[in-house]
Simulated scan of single mutants.
Amino acid sequence: MTNGWRALVVVLGLLTLPACGQDTSVSEAISPAYRQMLKTLYRETVPTIQPAALADMLRAKSQKVVLLDTRTPAEYKVSHLTGAKFVNFDSFEKNEFTGLSRDQTVVVYCSVGARSERVGERLKALGFRDVRNLYGGIFQWVNEGRPVYNAAGPTRQIHPYSALWSVWLRQGEQVYK
């Protein structure tokens, strides 16, 4: 990440910090600064799906959805969406994604959605027909109060990727492992 991007992320993060006494309930909408940051990161090459819509889709179970966590092994180990399959971002370009039907819905996610969008682009290039990127990534999923899991079961722990990106994670316990 260039110094310019780092500065932008930090400044936007500081702009979203709540004022003293301000209500920061889980149900609050995505912050304008976070939305703007995502707009600068996303190429808009993969359709997004809002966390609430994904939660509804998973709950309904009427449609087979494959979740692909496209972060690093350390991030995945701390927590992930239930049932998510791990796809290492550092080596996804060599992955042919054999064993996955090109006709089923695939939802990719990472911390905020930038890395997962790259993986989504790869999936589309390989002929997957219904690929979506979780808008705001696992950070927005957790910020909206949705559950994450690790090998032991439900957890509040989230790997914030880096101290720079941690400003966007408002819920859960930040853990670097």
Rank of each mutant, 00 (worst) to 15 (best):
L123D: 04
D103C: 02
T16S: 14
F92T: 02
F86K: 09
E44V: 05
V106E: 01
V142F: 02
K177Y: 06
D23L: 09
R156M: 04
T48F: 03
D130W: 13
C20V: 13
S111F: 09
Q174E: 09
W5G: 11
S62I: 09
L8G: 06
V87K: 05
C110P: 02
L123I: 10
K61Q: 15
V87P: 14
S25P: 03
A33K: 06
F97W: 15
N143D: 07
E75V: 12
Q140P: 03
V106Q: 01
S101I: 03
Q36S: 14
V112P: 01
V10R: 11
S166F: 03
R146C: 02
I49Q: 00
T24W: 09
S25K: 08
H159Y: 07
D103V: 00
V131Y: 04
I158R: 00
L134V: 03
M1D: 09
Y135H: 11
A84S: 15
T24S: 11
K124I: 12
F97G: 06
P154N: 07
Q104A: 05
R6V: 11
R122F: 06
Q22M: 11
K77C: 14
F97H: 13
V11L: 10
A55R: 06
T48K: 03
C110T: 06
E96L: 15
K61L: 12
I138R: 00
V10G: 04
T72P: 03
L8H: 07
N3Q: 14
Y109L: 07
V142W: 00
G4A: 11
L169E: 01
V148M: 05
L134C: 03
G172W: 00
N3F: 13
S116F: 01
A29F: 07
T45A: 08
V46W: 00
H159G: 01
A74E: 15
V142E: 00
P73M: 14
V66A: 09
V10L: 08
Q36K: 13
K94I: 05
V9K: 03
T45N: 08
R170N: 07
H159V: 04
V108L: 02
V167C: 12
I30K: 06
W168K: 04
D56R: 07
F128V: 14
G120T: 03
T70C: 14
N143Y: 07
S31R: 08
R146F: 06
V26A: 04
L100G: 03
F139M: 04
E173D: 11
A19D: 12
K39G: 10
